[in-house]
Amino acid sequence: MSFNLKLLNLFFGMCTGTTGLPPDLHRLGYIPETVETTFSNSEDRNVAPDLIIASAQAHHTVCFEWKSGANTEADQLQRYSRVVPNDLVAKAFVHVNKCATHDIAIIGKDEHRGTIPIGVRDGGYAFPVMVTTATGMETILNAYTHVPTDGVFRPLNVNWDTVPTSFFPLDADSELWEFAEHAIPHVLEQMIKGAPRIRMDDLAKSMIPLYDRMRPDYKGQLKQKIQQVMDHASRAQFSTYLQRSPRAVAGVMQTPTWDVIDNPLVGMADKRQKAWKAMQKKHESLINYFKNPQRQEVLEMDEGEAVR
């Protein structure tokens, strides 16, 4: 799971009081306000925090910017420094009751703890800077202006092995086996309802939260992975049930589509029960195929001929 997705899921989990995570942010009344929303600062220049959380109880808002690389960007930090409470209320639409005070917080990786604070320190900004560690997260520069919030991260103990993954399960960096894991239940859900075909766009929308809001090039990366998984499934494990639509291959349809050529999930109850058992084995086999680093890829030729 990418650094971005891991942190997004962690903070959603902590704010919603999810079991297995520190409960402090939830107890302080924080809720996730918005994800990757762009708004302009007091100088009319854009900022786009990865996540904004806010608490009516603490009257405090935190804009998070996470950095998977080694450095911060001077211009970006300068733009964040010009965010005032009115920007949060009027342009990021955070309730006025939640942003009497606010912080911009930077989160980097442990391996960059030497370089990540440099820009903040050199710019004289008061932004708390944190790094993820093997056991959670710690603040390495500055402090949150809201003292109880600051206490949450001194340090934050997290078992990374069991951090939630299901608020935002996939991004363009996710592995193909993860796409396989999520795609098939969506396909089966459609098949139970008697769908004659599975459309890529529908699949992407139901698998990936906030898909409609993503940039076209980013959607393209996601769709490429879904297509790779679905094409393999329809040629191998699920070939009895699915077939890449010849019309989609020929470009007649606007989105890649897979026809349901046999649907054992509708019809007599006894037959369905057997089919579900078979589906579980096929799904497992598909996931294992994509987990195998030695897998042999099957490439589709223009005419639909498969080559290995």
Binding site: T18, T34, F167
Partner: peptide, 24 residues
């Protein structure tokens, strides 16, 4: 229920409501 939304009249603000259930 987890509901993901885009508030068009609020600057395309992306939101999520709902929360997971926990069993121990």
């Amino acid at each position: 229920s987890l509901r993901y939304g885009i508030e068009a009249d609020h600057g395309n603000k992306a939101t999520m409501t709902g929360e997971p259930l926990n069993i121990t």
